[in-house]
Design a protein around this nucleic acid. Sequence first.
DNA 1: ACACTTTATTGACCTGGATCAATGTGTGAA
DNA 2: TTCACACATTGATCCAGGTCAATAAAGTGT
Lengths: 249, 249
Amino acid sequence: MTQARMITPLFVDLAKVEHHHQLACQSCALYRLCLPLGLHRDDLSKLDQIIKRSAGYKRHQILFEPSSSFKTIYIVRSGSFKTTISAADGREQVTSFYFPGEFIGMDAIYQQRYLSTARALEASSVCELPYERLQDFSSKIPELQNQLMTRLSKELSSDKNLLLSLGKKTAQEKLISFLLSMSQRFSERGYSATSFQLTMSRGDIANHLGLAIETVSRLFTQLQEQQLLTIQGKEVAILDLSALKQRCG
Amino acid sequence: MTQARMITPLFVDLAKVEHHHQLACQSCALYRLCLPLGLHRDDLSKLDQIIKRSAGYKRHQILFEPSSSFKTIYIVRSGSFKTTISAADGREQVTSFYFPGEFIGMDAIYQQRYLSTARALEASSVCELPYERLQDFSSKIPELQNQLMTRLSKELSSDKNLLLSLGKKTAQEKLISFLLSMSQRFSERGYSATSFQLTMSRGDIANHLGLAIETVSRLFTQLQEQQLLTIQGKEVAILDLSALKQRCG
DNA sequence: ACACTTTATTGACCTGGATCAATGTGTGAA
DNA sequence: TTCACACATTGATCCAGGTCAATAAAGTGT
């Protein structure tokens, strides 16, 4: 989500205000995608007071890991993150990518312990929601409670769709599904649905989809040969969105 | 979860009361595993009034599917269920199995539409929680709200663990992880951790783990040859639990 | 007890994608 | 600008697990 790729006004102000850590939700460019949506004006300003705007995270910097104590749910403010879960022997699975307005760390509510490790994919920043205070608030503000449940349920839905990909789809279908999901998320954020910059490496994509790096690389080449997209480095241009939709299973 | 396999007092009364659809939560044998845990006596009796105890479902009967309108979250009262999610071309992925005390349908909160199809694996029954009324209640009862969030988060955790299995584990590790998860869930419910009856078919297990039926069958044979367990039909006896734990990755 | 259907096992063979290996292409530090 | 190192592509080969095929059990209804 680099500044260079912005094509609509939604994020125009983000660069300017990036350093104003205590910017109120009401004037945040993410308002339409974020938690406060649907909250009353005065509820929102109360919520505002418990939210801490963090300093930035650098590429590869850890936001939390299983050894961190769970106190906070994070919302991406700018940039992007990945979460990974580890097997006993160190094998890792990239479970999700997160973009502005999305919540990270909700799987820690059960067990009060982060299940996964979250790392920045690029220079990024987050808002921190102290979970205990969020609980207090949401018992007073039904709409907030509703938002939290909806977000949890949304993550559940996307994990279940990924299960379908991992369990039943071919390598090509997996990669196309992934690209379409990226396309949709960029477009929801006011960027082009057909031309965007991936923030994760080929290795991250391959791992996330249960494939080898080489397979991902070959598939990109193949999709280019079929004139469905172009890709150079991290820059993707989708040439035939509907053809891709037909091939994703 | 057949009556024949009960070995502790936890479920002793369940057979007798099975037909009392309006049995109160307070006297339900599932109390310790279920939603009401931690609720005050009077809150509980209020909750009781919005819960509907359903009639039974037969093996293979559908509890809900994506075309059903979302109004209800279900809790398994007896028996077991599976949920499947479908690709456009009809391929299905078994996303979860559900046992007594577990919640089905939480992925429908986002979008207000069931994402998956839920089917009974055996003769089963559920409690129905009308979601709207549950929302009203949980804004008055913080502990209930907390329970709901925790359940959502728990399902998120187990889905993420399944992602790790599907993405990074070998066929044998997948099957062992699955058996250990079953073992734990039976044991939480007062059944033996080492001797239990699977309620799902080989096909369901294979599908859930992203394997072919034949592979599952061969792996069972192989694990028997290695003296780690015995299996005849659906009856499993784990002979060396700790050896299995070492091999699940 | 019977026939009939569904589910599970076992063997033989095949293939999609992994692995191994070599080379090419950024990209950031000094 | 150059070095150094991480990341990406491409080709050759291999194998875990899938597919196909043939029985064998285990349910299920009559």
